[in-house]
Design a protein around this nucleic acid. Structure first.
Lengths: 250, 250
DNA sequence: CGAACGCTTGACACTCTTCAAGACATGTGG
DNA sequence: CCACATGTCTTGAAGAGTGTCAAGCGTTCG
């Protein structure tokens, strides 16, 4: 039934009615009636790890909600240094209505499923649907706050604190109820180099600080990208954050 | 006529019909009819330099367009370091609808005139006026891009490049047509310490780099905060930006 | 005039980057 | 199965760029 030519015969993604992401995504602002229109317009897309979804300056063919996996927004500077300015995790919105030229490179770090729309279609829906539009504005405001919080982390923290911050952040997003004192596990899903590009360091410094944190027992390596966190509270203190203070979420 | 109690007897600010800011502000999205409603709802406010408009976590009594002067959005870190995460210059929108608790300290760097609205009133106008709402979303998207571009500058540039970037940015905003090769003037309006908080450096380093740029003739000091820029293109190169590449605007 | 403030300049310490080599894992072809 | 290549990660040593601490200058204001 009306398969987009790009859509291989994967298992179908959930219908809006059964979709878990809908709790937090843009579509959480949609009414039941709206949802039926969204269902008709949406186009699922899948990407492998390491694929480029859009280069900076190019037009995005689809915008929408990340269903699973992690995307990076990045820009390459003058002399080859690369800065990742945002991570898109499940529930986050990829692309912007009325601004279909992406100002950043959009790439997948892992396999990614996207619940997408043609930009013009989605803009039409936004104009029609009050709730959807309202949720969209909320999410944009949240993203702005997150970007600014992220700014303070990159700008003022030491290498050690930056890594601890990233680990705490991802631990919180990956564990539903990470009780303090209760050990938990975190998968950073990014290579040392990607972490470096995200935190504005060299991958050597990333490696050094990770082994340093491991030596002190704040994290316990399981594989190279998976760690056990025996004491999240201790890791928070290493991140230099005041108590529960403003933990970013992008 | 209907003077707000906060409004001392200053000269009146312009009517919307004569307002220059309206070219770039949110209200540029308003129709002639909308404009009459805006005119009725707006409340001009004035602040002296160094005033605190809102502390982080507090409710903003007014949101609206900055008419003149410069405001800073800032947050104080754990050990007393301060990070300015955004500058609000004339035409920029101060505060966010549906998010009246400010996540940052809002302060004036100079004397500031604000064309403000009660949050609830402005939200009502947004719901009613398609053009206004559309322009608001555009501005939010631009702000998000600006925050992310700013991120790459803070994260990856040297002290010298950061200062050059800031100077170029402000020069572009303060000169309508800064032709390359044509000399122009820039007023940074911020103290050395504020610049340091904005660029994540110490004020000593700011001072050193400014004198260094001046020694090389890239900027010519007029007063301590005003410089002539004999060759904007040369300054751009010192900023490490690729040609005209993504110059941020906050 | 003295005090307060913003700014400049210097000397030194320290963090992080840079350059370089090696360890470890994975995959390929003989 | 090995030799070899490749990519990712670790570790080391030296150097550059900023932060830190400290002193001094210039202006403003009471």
């Amino acid at each position: 039934m009306s398969a987009d030519s790009k859509n291989q015969q994967y298992d179908a993604l959930p219908h809006c009615a059964d979709c878990m992401i809908r709790v937090t995504g843009v579509c959480s602002g949609a009414t039941a009636v709206d949802l039926r229109a969204l269902e008709q317009a949406k186009v699922y897309r899948r990407f492998g790890p390491g694929e480029t979804i859009a280069l900076a300056g190019s037009r995005m063919t689809h915008i929408g909600t990340v269903m699973s996996g992690v995307c990076t927004l990045a820009r390459t500077q003058g002399r080859g240094t690369r800065q990742i300015v945002g991570l898109l995790q499940p529930g986050d919105f990829l692309g912007r209505p009325w601004r279909t030229i992406s100002p950043f490179d959009v790439e997948t770090a892992t396999a990614v499923e996207l619940c997408g729309f043609r930009p013009a279609v989605f803009e039409g829906l936004l104009d029609r649907m009050d709730g959807l539009r309202r949720r969209m504005m909320e999410m944009m405001l949240d993203e702005l706050d997150a970007a600014r919080s992220w700014l303070t982390i990159l700008a003022r923290k030491t290498a050690r604190e930056k890594l601890a911050s990233l680990l705490v952040n991802m631990t919180l997003r990956q564990n539903t109820a990470p009780l303090r004192g209760k050990p938990c596990r975190v998968d950073i899903m990014l290579s040392r180099e990607q972490i470096a590009d995200l935190l504005s360091m060299t991958f050597e410094t990333v490696s050094r600080q990770l082994t340093s944190l491991a030596r002190e027992g704040l994290i316990l390596p399981v594989t190279r990208r998976v760690f056990d966190v025996p004491d999240l509270h201790a890791l928070m203190q290493a991140s230099g954050e005041d108590a529960d203070g403003g933990f970013f979420h992008v």
